[in-house]
Design a protein around this nucleic acid. Structure first.
Lengths: 347, 347
DNA sequence: ATGAAAGCGCTAACAG
DNA sequence: CTGTTAGCGCTTTCAT
């Protein structure tokens, strides 16, 4: 691999001069600069960033820790963060902490060794697993921003969606459509989903409704069972709120298999605004917690910290406002109570 | 940031000894090793990989270039490659070349500067954009493996799916079910999809069928129009082959909106085996080009090259065999010709 | 405007 | 078994 001294030799100047020329330093005469740049280019010279990084004590890289990427949710986030990072002039080092976030601590350790300039840590349903590693990291003043759900906020910058407000929005929407018998679908194993449910309940309460039908389904099988249970109720619900789109999608599938029409017989609302929702028929009404904003906020926070690593004025939290996405899967409740299971139309 | 010499000082030994102890060298007495490791751990020491990388001239990192990750296709691939890489003891540096692969050359340049040990380049519909950069790279003997579609194979290792065989499988399946009026959906802008179509045609031909209904739809709107066109035909088709699942999904949506029942009135087959297909109702019959195998082959090739960077015995190509995934969206054709558009059943 | 020299933090001969 | 020394490839004072 061709290096700086090779170029220096070819150009008959010192390494320093080549270095300066390639860095476009104003201290080099324009023509010599052109000459050197030309020689370097022709020789196919590429700086050795690892040597450079060692010297300048910066990698212009941000480390991104995400549980997984084989899942409808995270990839978009990764994409947006990558875009924002690139825009800010940073490379990305991707570390996958595992669906169950088992490798979170390990990832953080690796990231510290790599001397990235900043890290974005995205947590998932298990919340913050690598709390110790994160604290240790934060205590050294390393720029970190935490995305997602945690139960006790560690002293680092965070950006997260306003789940409670989102849940509230859905409740408002559904009740304003006239629904009174409403079922909540999904377990609430952690902060974020919990908040969604809390906000939802608050919305219902405001409308004078008191639901206690809550089906804590998580797996596909549990959803199927849950739907069956619903359909057998004496007074089945007219609306379902699933705390995330993937759940809502599965619920729709089950309903459709049971020949229940959405939204005519049951309205369904999700949460997350996954692309998936637009492929469904009917298209899913859901809540969006702008991932664009989330990603941008995260990278902005980070860039700010990286620019002035000295000034630490305490952790900053940024809250992303929710937006209700009204599509096709929620409508006014039908007056009748009968939900067809008896005869399935010829579709 | 605490460094090796700090530990050496604390332990009262030389830097080399610390280095060896941490590397678990057998040349250090067990107890001293324990002691040093303990001191290092307590001090929260983390090797500076960038210094280490410079010294050992290796980063134990593989660079992965992918067009995008906000898309149902690539994320799984990234996940699997990441898993395989981790298993082999490598970190991942993710570079996004853009939906239109505009930044492909730029990514490759960045990757060379970063001195990654190997690179996986994934191309998309545009084929290989950074041909020059890749050739230049390959000519230096850098381990590279190319995934995806290209029209002219550059002299590097490649792994790709046997698209033609996959198309053939679909044709066999559909014709064996008894379909004779078959429509192909989608444009074939590049090698891979082209091969799918070629294989499909071959299958039809073997069954004595000569289709010339080919609807080159790419956008959602084009698909809608295409479906409308089909349904207005005097003798509408009984089966549709969409060259990729996302297209098939959209076609299903349109058919359903037109109150056409799948597979009773029209069978639909896709290609890619996206998760999406299992969310659809009916679940999509499709073709799988095992991504697991693809990812593993790619990383294996790479690891092999990285182990012995000297021996270059010409590019190796690995072909991934297709597998037909029979689900619910294809069945025997109905005898009648009437496709309901007139009256839409109440679902 | 350019060069000489030091050093980023680490590992690997080589010497003892 | 352990220490000394050199150097990976680059940037950056400090001289000139």
């Amino acid at each position: 691999m061709i290096k700086l001294s090779d170029i220096a030799q070819k150009a008959g100047v010192s390494e320093s001069t080549v270095s300066r020329a390639l860095a476009n330093s104003p201290r080099i005469s324009a023509e010599k600069k052109k000459l050197i740049q030309r020689i370097a280019f022709d020789a196919g010279y590429k700086v050795n960033q690892v040597a450079r990084n060692l010297r300048v004590r910066s990698t212009r890289t941000i480390g991104l820790v995400v549980p997984e990427v084989a899942n409808p949710y995270f990839p978009r986030l990764v994409q947006l963060i990558a875009d924002a990072a690139r825009e800010a002039g940073y490379h990305l080092q991707l570390h996958l902490s595992g669906v169950a976030q088992d490798a979170e601590t390990e990832c953080l350790a690796a990231i510290r060794e790599q001397r990235v300039d900043g890290v974005v840590l995205v947590t998932s349903e298990r919340g913050l697993v690598a709390r110790d590693a994160l604290n240790e990291m934060a205590s050294t003043g390393a720029p970190v921003v935490l995305l997602g759900w945690v139960n006790d906020a560690p002293p680092v910058d965070m950006v997260y969606g306003d789940d409670a407000a989102g849940g509230y929005l859905v409740a408002r929407h559904i009740t304003e459509l006239g629904h009174r018998r409403i079922v909540v679908f999904g377990a609430a194993p952690h902060r974020g989903t919990f908040d969604r449910l809390v906000g939802f309940q608050r919305g219902l309460k405001e409308a004078g409704i008191d639901t206690d039908v809550h089906i804590p389904a998580r797996t596909n099988e549990e959803i199927r069972l849950g739907i069956e249970y619903l359909l057998r109720m004496a007074n089945p619900p007219t609306a379902i709120f699933a705390y995330k789109d993937s759940l809502a999608a599965m619920a729709c599938r089950c309903l459709r298999q049971a020949c229940v029409s959405i939204p005519d017989q049951i309205s369904v609302a999700g949460f997350d605004n996954l692309d998936l929702g637009t492929y469904l028929c009917p298209q899913l009404t859901t809540v969006d917690l702008s991932m664009e904003q989330t990603a941008r906020s995260a990278v902005d926070s980070l860039v700010e910290r990286m620019k002035s690593p000295t000034t630490w004025d305490g952790p900053k939290h940024r809250l992303i406002p929710p937006q209700l996405i009204v599509r096709e899967s929620c409508s006014h409740p039908r007056s009748t109570n009968s939900i067809g299971r008896t005869e399935c139309p010829p579709i």
